[in-house]
Write a protein that binds this DNA or RNA. Structure first.
Length: 671
DNA sequence: CCTATATAGATTTTT
DNA sequence: TCTATATAGG
């Protein structure tokens, strides 16, 4: 055993690390060394002779999973294979075993993201009601109800009927499910749901999984929903070797069905649960901790606990009001400059906000000033139109039944094929029970389809045959080849006069090809399907580089599990925190937890900013400081210049110059 | 029957 | 500011 495995641990941490068999609950406050405990425990198990692949650790985000993997590898030199998100673990299970469920789907399934789901829902509504859905919100609201039902394990058959709207959702839900089965597609919820179904139906599989995964670990247990809870129960073998960690005060996903009662009830679920509470904070200053403790105590529904720390007192939190979002960004920029004069690297600073849209004003300022930054999340790379287009082609190669992908393939450039033709194709494919793309590629396409075939359709079918002829392996070559066959780059080049983003789109496509080659280099034996899964479930994390010397920007949700010496939380104002859609009491408590999460990310300093006015959709709206600010004890906070923002002048001038890698900024006297 | 253009309408958080 | 839908042209 590596000798340092048990070094520098407190007694409680040691207890959690060296626990081997039976259920364990670790209630881990923010900054209490939870990751350290979990990773050391995995390493400890391995050092005690547990085979790394017998450990299944599930997290919510890829960031958390990757960090866990890396740190275990540092400790024992092996990266356990089964450390990943709930979704990626289930995707791997289903690639292997989905066919055994016998619902018509198999391991080549496509994973649909929300826009794909929308497209399916719209098609279902049209089919059922003969009319288009009105706008995006309609499909969206139906989808969110379907998702809620799935996460609560409610099948279409028992979906609550009553109001006409309920009945309607129930009908769409049913059609939606059927449609996904037909297309050999699953949505995010299905990844978990179908795994649950599979394990419920097949005791033989359950036994196999139990013997394969002798130790189960679940991170951020307070964020599990019923579906994830059910999955946990099914994966837990008879020995109850399940180890969960979490913090009820950091539960911020109730909108996704998370129920922190899961963590409250864990010890009741499993007899003989050992409970360890980690309440010493190693991350933050006394002041930061005092502020966050006071804040979270305003929540009524909560497990009483109070974190303490031996760290220094540190400096007060700074609160700064700005006249608008532009000024807010400039204030933050100034805070960054001040830190830079103390030689603090940019990698030690982060800006958090409630909504992704808020990143814009910061980007504009940092771009102008020349501060390198990276944004975590936001418009995901693979959700961009051009990327979805190229992905659709690749998807179709792997899953010829994927109608959503075919629609994109048809629609992304002039093919001469439209809705009517597509409907005809689909009808025929269903009739003949052939995957629609196979029908198109078939050498006797004309005979199969029958009737008059427009020249354009014949051309398209011939083109499909070319596409299908592209070798699938190796992945990088395949992606480059497909891009060439599709000619998307030329499409955008021709569109450059109408689409101002055309150049970016071409760059993105090139970046996508690069990514495919990188993937191939990292996993030479991987298939196209593996690559697509990676893109659907894990691609974005790789974009965030914790070691890069640049500033990080992300939502408060994304910040969970991370830490930074210096944290800025922007938009601490009514309307954002709490968000205007979360004014209900219970919702406000979650918003408070969100700010709590943000503040407790910080090691040394925190700056909270808000705007008094803000442009929303081009309209100037009055805003005001968040109610949460008044909950911070006065002695922990300095109100910096909130009264005296002389004129907020659009002419605050910021210049940047580089010298020796250091940035210097000059401001005029408005500062 | 398909394609390009204009116009309204939309943003919470994530796998 | 950006995207999806309505509409008219080809």
């Amino acid at each position: 055993m590596p000798s340092d495995l048990l070094d520098n641990l407190t007694e409680t941490q040691l207890e959690a690390v060296t626990h081997i068999d039976g259920p364990m609950l670790v209630v881990a406050g923010a900054g209490s060394g939870k990751t350290r405990v979990v990773t050391r425990r995995i390493a400890y198990l391995i050092s005690k002779g547990v085979w790394p692949n017998q450990i299944l650790a599930m997290t919510f985000t890829n960031k958390a999973a990757n960090e866990m993997k890396e740190r275990v590898e540092q400790l024992v030199g092996v990266a356990p294979r089964w450390v990943g998100t709930f979704h990626s673990a289930c995707a791997k299970f289903l690639r292997q075993d989905l066919e055994k469920l016998g619902d018509g789907r198999n391991g080549n399934f496509t994973i649909y993201d929300s826009s794909d789901q929308q497209s399916v829902v719209k098609a279902c509504v049209k089919e059922l009601e003969g009319t288009e859905t009105s706008g995006r919100t309609n499909a969206n609201s139906i989808l969110s109800r379907i998702s809620r039902a799935k996460c609560a394990l409610v099948p279409p058959a028992t979906f609550g009927k009553g109001t006409p709207e309920d009945d309607r959702v129930a009908r769409v839900y049913k059609a939606y499910e059927k449609s996904l089965r037909q297309m050999n597609a699953v949505d995010f919820d299905d990844l978990l749901l179908l795994t649950v179904k599979l394990l419920e139906q097949r005791s033989d599989l359950r036994d196999i999984y139990h013997s394969r995964f002798r130790y189960l670990l679940i991170d951020e247990y307070q964020d599990t929903n019923r579906l994830q809870y059910r999955l946990m129960r099914l994966l837990t073998g008879p020995k109850h070797n399940v180890h969960v960690t979490g913090d009820p005060d950091q539960s911020i996903y109730s909108w996704r069905g998370a129920d922190y009662r899961n963590i409250m009830d864990f010890a009741k679920d499993f007899e003989n649960t050992r409970v360890v509470r980690l309440e010493q904070n190693y991350r933050s200053t006394k002041t930061i901790l005092a502020a966050s403790n006071a804040l979270i105590q305003n929540n009524t529904k909560r497990f009483e606990k109070e974190l303490f720390t031996d760290n220094d007192r540190g400096v007060q939190l700074t609160v700064k009001g700005a006249d608008n979002e532009r000024m807010e960004a400039l204030h933050v920029a100034q805070g960054i400059v001040t830190l830079r004069t103390r030689r603090v690297p940019l990698s030690e600073m982060a800006i958090f906000y409630r909504t992704n849209a808020q990143s814009r004003s910061f980007e504009e300022v940092f771009m102008r000033v020349g501060v390198p930054y990276q944004i975590v999340g936001g418009v995901r790379f693979y959700e961009r139109k051009e990327i979805k287009d190229i992905l659709a082609h690749l998807t179709l190669l792997g899953n010829p039944r994927d109608v959503v992908a075919l629609k994109r393939v048809v629609g992304c450039r002039s093919t001469g094929v439209g809705d009517k033709t597509l409907a005809r194709l689909l009808a025929r494919a269903n009739e003949a029970d052939i995957p629609v793309f196979d029908l198109l590629c078939s050498s006797d396409f004309k005979e199969l389809l029958g009737g008059r075939i427009p020249r354009k359709l014949a051309n398209f079918a011939a083109w499909c045959r070319d596409l299908a002829g592209v070798p699938r392996i190796p992945v990088g070559e395949c992606v480059r080849e497909v891009l060439g066959v599709v000619g998307l780059v030329d499409v955008y080049r021709n569109k450059s006069d109408t689409d101002p983003a055309a150049e970016d789109r071409i760059e993105n496509l090139e970046a996508f090809v690069d990514r495919a080659f990188e993937f191939e280099a990292a996993r030479p034996e991987a298939t196209l399907a593996d690559f697509l899964e990676d893109v659907a479930l894990v691609a974005d994390v790789d974009a965030w580089d914790s070691s890069a010397d640049c500033l990080s920007l992300m939502t408060l949700h994304s910040s969970k599990g991370l830490e930074f010496p210096h944290v800025f939380v922007a938009g601490v104002e009514e309307g954002y925190l709490p968000h205007q859609n979360s004014e209900a009491d219970w919702a406000v408590e979650e918003e408070r937890r969100l700010l709590y999460v943000g503040i407790t990310r910080a090691q040394k300093s925190v700056m909270l900013t808000y705007a008094r006015q803000r442009y929303t959709w081009g309209r100037l709206e009055p805003r005001g400081p968040s109610r949460f600010l008044s909950e911070l004890p006065p002695e922990t906070v300095t109100y910096d210049g909130t009264e005296d923002d002389r004129n907020d002048s659009e002419d605050a001038k910021v210049d940047a110059a580089t010298d020796d890698g250091e940035l210097y900024y000059d401001y005029d006297d408005t500062w």
